[in-house]
Measured scan of single mutants.
Amino acid sequence: WVQCTKPECRKWRQLTKEIQLTPQIAKTYRCGMKPNTAIKPETSDHCSLPED
């Protein structure tokens, strides 16, 4: 599990088994990010989705 770092969101998201949760990902994670590439989402507001 990882928490969105966006102050107005802070929702918890479940990561897939393939993703290694590192301190860097935990510090920078935003809803919809692909942690294995550290690319921020380009599409709609993933923070608007219900918490996992």
Rank of each mutant, 00 (worst) to 15 (best):
W1R: 02
W1E: 06
W1Y: 14
V2M: 00
V2T: 00
V2L: 03
V2E: 00
V2A: 04
V2S: 00
V2R: 00
Q3M: 05
Q3F: 00
Q3V: 03
Q3L: 03
Q3K: 06
Q3T: 03
C4P: 00
C4H: 01
C4F: 06
C4S: 01
C4N: 02
C4M: 07
C4Q: 02
C4T: 01
C4A: 05
C4Y: 03
C4V: 01
C4I: 02
T5D: 02
T5Q: 00
T5V: 06
T5Y: 02
T5W: 00
T5P: 01
T5G: 02
K6L: 12
K6P: 03
K6N: 10
K6D: 15
K6W: 03
K6F: 03
K6V: 13
P7A: 09
P7H: 06
P7N: 14
P7G: 06
P7C: 06
P7D: 12
E8A: 09
E8S: 15
E8V: 00
E8M: 06
C9N: 02
C9T: 01
C9M: 02
C9F: 01
C9P: 01
C9E: 09
R10Q: 08
R10W: 01
R10K: 13
R10P: 04
R10A: 13
R10I: 03
R10D: 06
R10Y: 06
K11H: 01
K11N: 05
K11S: 06
K11P: 00
K11F: 00
W12N: 00
W12L: 03
W12P: 01
W12F: 02
W12I: 02
R13Y: 04
R13D: 03
R13M: 05
R13E: 14
R13W: 07
R13L: 06
R13P: 03
R13C: 14
Q14A: 04
Q14R: 07
Q14G: 05
Q14D: 00
Q14I: 02
Q14H: 10
L15P: 03
L15H: 03
L15N: 04
L15M: 11
L15V: 10
L15D: 01
T16I: 03
T16S: 12
T16W: 00
T16M: 04
T16E: 15
T16F: 08
T16Q: 05
T16C: 03
K17Q: 05
K17Y: 05
K17E: 12
K17V: 03
E18R: 03
E18Y: 02
E18C: 05
E18Q: 00
E18N: 15
E18G: 12
I19M: 11
I19E: 15
I19P: 08
I19W: 15
I19K: 05
I19S: 08
I19G: 11
I19D: 08
Q20Y: 02
Q20A: 09
Q20D: 05
Q20G: 04
Q20C: 05
Q20F: 01
L21A: 05
L21V: 05
L21E: 01
T22S: 10
T22I: 00
T22E: 06
T22M: 02
T22A: 02
T22F: 00
P23C: 02
P23T: 03
P23Q: 07
P23G: 05
P23H: 01
P23Y: 00
P23M: 00
P23L: 04
P23E: 05
Q24T: 13
Q24H: 08
Q24N: 15
Q24C: 06
Q24M: 11
I25Y: 10
I25K: 05
I25R: 04
I25D: 07
I25V: 09
A26D: 08
A26S: 08
A26Q: 14
A26T: 11
A26V: 13
A26C: 09
A26P: 03
A26M: 14
A26L: 11
A26F: 05
A26H: 07
K27R: 11
K27H: 14
K27I: 09
K27M: 11
K27G: 08
K27W: 02
T28M: 06
T28R: 03
T28L: 04
T28H: 04
T28S: 08
Y29V: 02
Y29C: 12
Y29Q: 04
Y29H: 03
Y29G: 03
Y29E: 05
R30N: 06
R30S: 06
R30Y: 15
R30D: 04
R30W: 12
R30F: 06
C31I: 08
C31V: 02
C31G: 02
C31D: 04
C31Q: 00
C31W: 02
G32S: 04
G32R: 03
G32N: 04
G32C: 11
G32A: 03
M33G: 06
M33Y: 15
M33I: 11
M33L: 07
M33Q: 13
K34W: 13
K34P: 12
K34T: 15
K34Q: 06
P35Y: 15
P35I: 13
P35A: 14
P35L: 15
P35F: 15
P35D: 13
P35N: 05
P35R: 08
N36R: 07
N36K: 10
N36A: 09
N36V: 08
N36C: 06
N36G: 15
N36M: 10
N36I: 10
N36W: 09
T37V: 10
T37I: 07
T37D: 12
A38L: 11
A38E: 14
A38R: 14
A38Y: 09
A38I: 14
I39S: 09
I39C: 15
I39A: 13
I39Y: 07
K40M: 08
K40A: 13
K40W: 02
K40S: 10
K40G: 14
K40V: 14
K40Y: 10
K40E: 15
P41H: 08
P41G: 14
P41W: 04
P41A: 11
E42G: 12
E42Y: 10
E42P: 10
E42L: 08
E42M: 09
E42I: 01
E42C: 07
T43R: 12
T43L: 10
T43N: 09
T43I: 09
T43Q: 13
S44W: 06
S44Q: 06
S44F: 10
S44V: 13
S44Y: 11
S44C: 10
S44E: 14
S44D: 14
S44T: 15
D45I: 07
D45T: 09
D45V: 11
D45S: 10
D45M: 07
D45F: 10
H46T: 12
H46V: 11
H46K: 13
H46M: 15
H46I: 15
C47R: 11
C47A: 12
C47L: 07
S48M: 15
S48D: 15
S48L: 14
S48Q: 06
S48N: 11
S48F: 08
S48G: 14
S48E: 13
L49R: 13
L49T: 09
L49Y: 06
L49P: 10
P50H: 04
P50V: 11
P50K: 13
P50W: 08
E51G: 10
E51S: 11
E51Q: 06
E51Y: 05
E51W: 05
E51D: 14
D52P: 05
D52F: 04
D52T: 15
D52N: 14
D52A: 06
D52Y: 13
